Computed example of a mutant assay.
Amino acid sequence: MAAVAIPVLDLGPLRAGEPGALERLGAELRRAFTEVGFYFVRNHGVPEALVEEVFEAARRFHAQPLEAKLAMRFNEHNMGYMPMRGSTTRMNSLGTIYKPNANEAVFLKRELPADHPDVVNGVRFRARNRWPENLPGFRETALRYMDAMEALGKSLVPLYAVALGLPPDWFDEAFREPMYTLRMTHYPQQDPATAEEEWGLAPHVDTSFMTILAQNRVPGLSVRLPDGTWLDAPAPEGTFLVNGGMLLRRWTNDRFLATPHRVVNRSGRERYAIPFFMDCSFGHVMTPVPTCVDADNPPRYEPITYSEFMTTYQRANYGEALAEAEKAGRQKVELQGA
């Protein structure tokens, strides 16, 4: 059932330059996003050893004392450490607002130099990463993984164009320097009896154009198929699970699915996840794709940029973490002035 429910796209022929591979994969991706909303990729070229290093880096980060993690406290740029239960799924929920999510996470973005104009000018979502002080190799591992995920994501973008009946390079300018976020999440063990009262991550859809998720040996993720049934996501070895979110759905004028999913950790073990969220370049204006608009299906959304969308989303879902960060900042100022 799982193999039929979630398509598997083999990138080997595409990477080898085989004739017709792009068109075949584009058709497979179109079916995935009109019937399921998720797909796997295999033969993607990302070393399994690197994936394992990042899972270990996530474990090491969250094993630190809370004080060390709070030194990288979550901020208005959607970067840094978000404490346990620091988010509540609201804007992208399925209608029911549950308790704050039972997870903690650290968010990292593109590494920008101190003299980058966006850093100097304080542009939102374009700040510098903060790194843990006593985790040797953490920064280097995270940066190598983000580079690998960006390369994989950009290699997939032409498939989306072909799937939408567009030239393969149609999205190239939009993804010249994509915005992205690596989220390293820790899901503690949950009591199965209370799992539906407090989710590890409540039922939701992602915000992204593309989410790339490394396979996890500790189960917990399930997806809601278009017929409304929930499927525990399988984890084929050596693959990544890819899905789209609200921005993909919006950009395609609702043609492509943003499929709901949820996480609950009933495994009896600590669970870690390393989703990579990729979107268009910072200033690119997303208007409905022309092949998704006609007289019977006019544009449903106003043009929007990544920054405009994410500002609204962050305010809705990460209000708790931002409030705590602002409170901590005020207390620090008061102590310094005492």
Rank of each mutant, 00 (worst) to 15 (best):
P13H: 13
R15E: 14
A16P: 05
A16C: 08
G17K: 00
P19I: 11
G20T: 09
A27K: 13
R31K: 15
F33E: 09
V41F: 15
N43F: 08
E52A: 12
E53I: 04
E53P: 07
V54G: 06
R59N: 08
F61K: 03
P65Y: 07
K69F: 00
H77T: 05
Y81S: 00
M82P: 05
M84V: 09
G86S: 07
I97K: 10
K99V: 04
N103D: 07
L108C: 13
E111I: 04
D115R: 00
D115Q: 07
R126M: 07
R128Q: 10
N134V: 13
P136I: 00
G137H: 15
G137A: 10
A142S: 15
A142I: 15
A142V: 15
L143H: 14
R144G: 07
M146D: 09
S155I: 01
L156C: 08
V157M: 11
L159C: 03
A163M: 02
A163L: 02
L164H: 09
L164Y: 07
L164E: 09
P167I: 10
W170K: 09
F175V: 05
R176I: 10
L182M: 10
H186S: 04
Y187K: 03
P188Y: 00
P192N: 12
T194D: 08
A195G: 15
A195E: 12
E198Q: 14
E198I: 07
E198D: 06
W199L: 08
L201R: 07
H204L: 00
I212L: 06
L225W: 13
P226S: 07
D227L: 12
G228P: 07
T229D: 13
L247Q: 08
N253L: 03
A258K: 00
H261E: 01
R266H: 12
R269F: 11
I274V: 09
S281T: 10
P288K: 02
V289A: 11
D294G: 05
A295F: 06
D296P: 14
Y301C: 01
E302R: 09
P303S: 01
P303D: 03
I304R: 05
T312F: 14
Y313K: 14
N317S: 12
E324N: 06
E324H: 06
E326F: 10
K327T: 10
K327Q: 11
Q331M: 13
V333I: 08
